[in-house]
Amino acid sequence: MAPLASHAYDLLLAGALLWLAWQATHAADLFRSVISFIVFGLLMALAWIRLDAPDIALAEAAIGAGVTGALLLSALGRLTSAPAEKPAATRRWPGTIAVLALAATVLALLGAAAWQLPAPGLGDAVAGHMPRAGVDNPVTGVLLNFRAFDTLLEIGVLLLAVVAIWSLGPTPEPLVPAIPSPALPALGRMLWPMFVLATFYLLWRGTHAPGGAFQAGAVLGAGGILVILAGARPWLTGEDNGPWRWLLSLGVVTMLLAALSTTLIGQRFFEYPESAAAGVILVLEITAAISIAMLLFAAYLNGQPPARWRGYPHS
């Protein structure tokens, strides 16, 4: 009975995901697309759990269901003041077939490439090196020790994204619409401490179990979006967005400092001395989480935040 039920589970999940993906990319109504995509993210989290990847499920829950959902919904709110987009009504079959053929070719090539991968993977190699990593969770170990260079580049990408967004101009007004209900500030007030606790908790978990800087940062960033929608006043004011700039670049700066100091003491780039690995990773985790939270929050604002928040509603 159990195998039958788990097959049913997989099939249902796969069917729902495919249907939602189709709706997200081809529905006539734009709002339906966005909602389908949000639900798609929710079900992807279930798929990650099924594939024994709780790390990714956590990140998907925080980034996919939280930040991306908020990004898309508020972009939708800003888009609809413009003339409505035309739905994909004209469907030319030759074009569709050509596109599908192209997609299938790419897929086949990628599949062939994946097939050539060495079969056992790197699980044994990682397990062998874990004692030296300074943490107990293999994924955190890989992210912040063995492949720290990737992580540096990744926070770099996020920073670059925010720089690009800021270069487009100031945050469109209204930054936050008038509070529609007195229930919103109450909600934000009640949930904000939970967001803070959950962020610290995920950081703590990250050292020995699924969790870590990305998930923690994403949860805090989503919390920031929630409280600003609930009418909180942001603290980060000041000329030239001074505090913003410091916090946004904190993660990259710390990682670069760590990397450079390892070269200075004669190790290779990003090769921490074994004794200090735990401490270095701790610092990197905290700074990376703060930066990621701020970067995601800044990305939500769609532009450079004002130096003072005066002049925006309710502040």
């Binding site: 997200a24 990319t25 081809h26 734009l30 697309s33 966005v34 898309l72 972009a75 939708l76 888009l79 987009e85 035309k86 739905p87 994909a88 074009g95 569709t96 596109v99 599908l100 192209l102 997609a103 790419v106 897929l107």
Partner: peptide
């Protein structure tokens, strides 16, 4: 892939 090339509208 299909949506990326065939569907209309940036979003």
């Amino acid at each position: 892939c299909h949506g990326l090339f065939a569907s209309e509208g940036m979003l």
